[in-house]
């Protein structure tokens, strides 16, 4: 695969892009930075989703992990004064627990295809409704504001957006590394075998259950972290914006639009959806709320119909036409 140590133009481009990203906060206005932070955080979450989505486990439950990730540290901070440095891992622990409690029986009883999607959707509804129902402590559907602590590493709050930009960048890169690790590892071979023919895979000695749970747990944990950072960044939480069917679908769509089989696909999805949204919002002005999402919805439908492998999928096919198309999300 690797040509003998010539300079790989892709690496050069990558390093140049990274340098630009690092330099970015020092040269751009705050509004622009806000958008880039959102792209990085959502890109991270979409990447996390695609870690399991690409093997055919299309979860509509990731809104649950986001919600848990957002609310657990916020609640701990507001009521107990516990630093998010502990709160975020607590959120991850709860998300992983939920992922296993739902994932294990799903895999055990072969709940697949749209049944899997609907069960995970129910999970995200459970979390959404729980947040809404526990309005005494979460503020219910009115949302909750985090107790502000000014500029504080302890509280993980920074009025200066550049700090969050740095955090988002690091986390996003971390997400890409995990994605790549799964992509390169033997897990991928195992899981692709599983998504093609589970029994055959099992007969090859692959521990099907362990492999499935592993990607599920990784995906849930990362999504939870993404939710936490969103909460920290915005310092305001609302159940509808971090959990529920709309968020879950948003995650799935962006990952698919960008292309969940490619490293940068989910990030491209995030860039595309957010840039589109902002662009359309500027274009239409606030008189036409909904116009942006209307076009977005139409584009999503077109994507699913005409480009189910996403933008990066198409680009990859152009680059490597000899590679047979990988299976679309398995049933």
């Amino acid at each position: 695969m690797n040509p003998p140590r010539a300079i790989n133009p892709l690496h050069v481009a990558g390093i140049a892009a990274l340098a630009c990203l690092i330099a970015l906060p020092f040269v751009t206005p705050a509004y622009f930075l806000h958008i880039v932070i959102q792209i990085l955080l959502w890109g991270f979450i979409y990447t996390a989703w695609s870690i399991m989505g690409r093997f055919g486990f299309v979860s509509l439950g990731h809104g649950a992990f986001m919600g848990v990730g957002a609310y657990v540290p916020a609640l701990l901070w507001n009521y107990e004064g516990v630093t998010p440095w502990l709160g975020i891992p607590a959120g991850v622990a709860l998300s992983v627990l939920l992922a296993v409690v739902i994932g294990y029986p799903c895999f055990r009883f072969r709940v697949i295809g749209h049944y899997f999607a609907l069960v995970t959707l129910a999970l995200s509804e459970v979390v959404l409704r729980t947040i809404t129902a526990a309005r005494d402590i979460t503020g219910g559907s009115l949302g909750m504001t985090q107790k502000l602590a000014g500029h504080s590493w302890y509280a993980l709050q920074f009025p200066d957006k550049r700090y969050f930009y740095g955090i988002a960048l690091v986390v996003w890169l971390g997400g890409l590394l995990v994605w790549r690790w799964v992509d390169r590892g033997i897990e991928r071979e195992a899981l692709e075998a599983i998504s093609e023919d589970e029994e055959a895979a099992a007969s090859l000695g692959i521990d099907v259950m362990r492999e499935k749970l592993r990607v599920t747990v990784v995906s849930a944990a990362l999504t939870s972290v993404g939710g936490s950072l969103f909460g920290q960044y915005l310092a305001y939480l609302n159940p509808e914006t971090v959990s529920g069917i709309a968020v879950s679908l948003q995650i799935v769509f962006a990952a698919i639009a960008g292309g969940m089989y490619a490293l940068l696909g989910p990030t491209v999805g995030a860039f595309l959806t957010i840039a589109l949204n902002e662009g359309l919002r500027v274009w239409f002005g606030t008189n036409f709320i909904g116009a942006a999402n209307t076009i977005y919805g139409i584009l999503l439908i077109l994507f699913i119909i005409f480009m189910p492998r996403g933008i990066m999928g198409v680009i990859e096919n152009l680059r490597m036409p000899r590679r047979a198309p990988a299976p679309a999300p398995a049933e």
Binding site: V58, F253, F288, I304, A328, E331
Partner: peptide, 27 residues
Amino acid sequence: PVLRAPPINQLLATGGLLFFLQSFTTL
């Protein structure tokens, strides 16, 4: 158009419709 696609793509196609209808009525 997606009748022969994997079931999950069909579900997602109507998910796109969900976005569309919600935002179009908002508009």
